[in-house]
């Protein structure tokens, strides 16, 4: 029976200040996850060598792996901390901010780039226009629905982008998550109206063709979204789109 939970946390006081490491030790309790342990730590933030320090800042919300806000690097792998169970993790548990995203403080990162990517690819469906475009309920076959449902589970946690070797400050690649939303929105009966525009947006610099097919994204995605299938399907859609652009509509 374990007595302690050992944590090693990479801390940073502000966006511009250098990071540093601190270790913590908390009494073991069964069925904890990383978020609940961080909550316990917040009550008495004392390092292993007995120093009282500022509580660790991190982001969390739903506690059921649907909001995506608590993603961080846990033992080197990006994943949501609410679904990272202490009993499954090797100790000391090494917590770092989600890689590739700018640190705000401690384990709190700025995921504005995720939002910018979703905005850029028009990851929504226009339901209002100057005329009514909603003629009855859009029909989707059960097969199409179940394929698209996989992509609708994306919670914008950013793990796929953190694991992507092409994504980061060195490039303007939008990353796998916004691309998967193009796959989802382009399949929707109403979303299809903007398919061409979405495809043109991902055909520009930083879009689909900046993917290097390392396929780490699909390995780390906590929602098991078939990101590489989305990328292949968008490859086909952009191939056809470029033929239409070059030779005219078919």
């Amino acid at each position: 029976m374990k007595e302690w939970i050992h944590l090693r946390i990479r801390r940073q006081d502000g966006p511009e200040t250098p990071p540093y490491w601190q270790t913590f030790r908390l009494p073991y309790a069964p069925d904890q996850n990383v978020v609940s342990v961080l909550m316990c730590l917040r009550e008495n933030p004392m390092t292993t060598d007995g120093r009282q320090v500022e509580p660790v800042a991190w982001d969390h919300n739903c506690m059921e792996e649907v909001c995506g806000s608590c993603a961080m690097s846990i033992n080197g792998v990006p994943r949501p901390s609410c679904s990272a169970l202490i009993d499954d993790l090797e100790q000391p548990i090494v917590l770092e901010p989600l890689p590739k995203f700018p640190v705000v403080r401690d384990l709190l990162v700025d995921r504005a780039r995720m939002d910018a990517g979703l905005r850029r690819v028009k990851a929504w469906i226009e339901i209002d226009g100057i005329w009514d475009i909603h003629e009855g309920a859009p029909r989707i076959s059960p097969a199409e629905w179940s394929a698209s449902y996989l992509y609708s589970r994306c919670m914008s946690c950013g793990c796929c982008m953190a694991a992507c070797p092409q994504f980061g400050p060195q490039s303007d690649f939008i990353g796998p998550a916004p691309l998967a939303q193009v796959r989802l929105m382009n399949a929707h009966p109403t979303g299809r109206y903007d398919k061409t525009e979405r495809l043109h947006r991902i055909m520009a610099s930083g879009g689909l063709s900046d993917c290097g097919n390392a396929q780490n994204c699909v390995r780390v995605c906590p929602k098991e979204i078939p990101l590489t299938t989305a990328i292949g399907e968008l490859g086909r859609q952009t191939t056809l789109q470029s033929l239409k652009d070059l030779f005219g509509q078919g």
Partner: peptide, 20 residues
């Protein structure tokens, strides 16, 4: 190729190694 930031030990998957 300058866009690559491969982390082979962190993600030791075949496709990631091939990418590198």
């Amino acid at each position: 190729s300058g866009q690559m930031r491969a982390e082979l030990s962190r993600y030791p998957y075949a496709r990631n190694r091939f990418y590198w």
